[in-house]
Simulated scan of single mutants.
Amino acid sequence: MFDHVKFGVSNYAASKEFFLKALEPLGVVVVSEGSPTYGVEISSKDNTSLCLYQTEEKPAHLHLAFTALNRQQVEAFYRAALKAGGKDNGAPGLRQHYHPNYYAAFVIDPDGHNIEVVCHEPET
């Protein structure tokens, strides 16, 4: 559905570092970068990208959910995000109130955004 999502952050360097480290288990890398006010575009192999830029405005809180191919990627994201400075907002596990195979983890990023990685596939 999306080609890219772009949003402002209060500390460009901290947010860039957080997202690159936290989403590394999903294969995310920098694909282009300009000045902090222009921002950075990060993407994985699916060509959908996330773009961050420095803003003086207080960003509204977002909930961003990224797709994992398997449950191991969800767990790797969670560990990487916490190591990168994220705050726990829900350890990896099933959320069967969404559906029987909804396996997700949640962290809060440096700006207070709720970042989720979810796998919809059954355990392999």
Rank of each mutant, 00 (worst) to 15 (best):
H99G: 09
T55L: 02
G27A: 06
T48D: 08
G34I: 10
S35P: 10
A84T: 02
H61L: 14
E24V: 11
R79K: 13
V31C: 06
V117N: 10
V30P: 00
S44Y: 03
H63R: 13
G39Q: 12
T48Y: 14
P122Y: 11
S43P: 04
D46Q: 04
T55F: 02
H97Y: 07
V28S: 12
K6Q: 12
H113Y: 07
V40A: 06
C51R: 14
L50V: 13
R71I: 04
I115N: 01
L52M: 00
L20I: 05
L94E: 05
A84P: 05
A81V: 04
Y102S: 09
V9N: 00
S35E: 07
A60S: 05
N101V: 10
Y53S: 10
H61W: 09
E75M: 03
F66A: 04
L62F: 00
R71Y: 05
E75Y: 14
L52V: 00
N89A: 15
A22K: 07
V29S: 11
V30L: 01
I42G: 04
Y103E: 06
D3C: 03
H63A: 06
L50H: 08
H120W: 10
D109E: 00
P59D: 00
T67M: 15
T48L: 11
G34A: 11
K21Y: 06
V30K: 12
Q72A: 13
K83Y: 08
H120K: 12
P92K: 11
Q54S: 02
I108V: 08
G112L: 01
P59G: 00
A80T: 05
V107N: 03
A68P: 05
S10I: 06
V40C: 11
G8P: 08
T37R: 06
P25K: 06
L82Y: 02
H63L: 06
L94G: 12
K87F: 13
N11A: 09
V31K: 08
A68H: 08
D109K: 01
L64D: 01
N47C: 08
F106A: 09
V107Y: 00
H97S: 11
V40T: 03
P36H: 04
L69R: 14
R71Q: 09
H61K: 11
V40P: 03
S49Y: 13
A14V: 15
T67A: 14
E41P: 13
A76F: 02
S10T: 15
Q72F: 09
E24T: 13
Q73Y: 05
S35L: 12
A68Q: 15
H4P: 05
C51N: 04
F106S: 10
A76P: 03
S49M: 10
F18T: 03
E121L: 14
V117K: 08
V29Q: 05
A76E: 04
P122E: 00
E56C: 06
N114E: 04
T37L: 12
Y103H: 09
T48N: 15
K87T: 11
D111G: 03
Q96E: 12
P122V: 03
E56T: 14
N70D: 04
L20C: 03
V40N: 00
K45W: 15
A81P: 00
E121I: 15
V107C: 00
C119I: 15
K6M: 11
T124M: 12
Q73D: 02
E75V: 15
V28T: 07
E33Q: 14
A80V: 01
P100Q: 10
Y38E: 04
S44L: 05
A80F: 01
I115C: 03
G86H: 01
C119L: 12
V74T: 02
Q72H: 06
V5H: 04
A65R: 08
Y38M: 03
K58M: 12
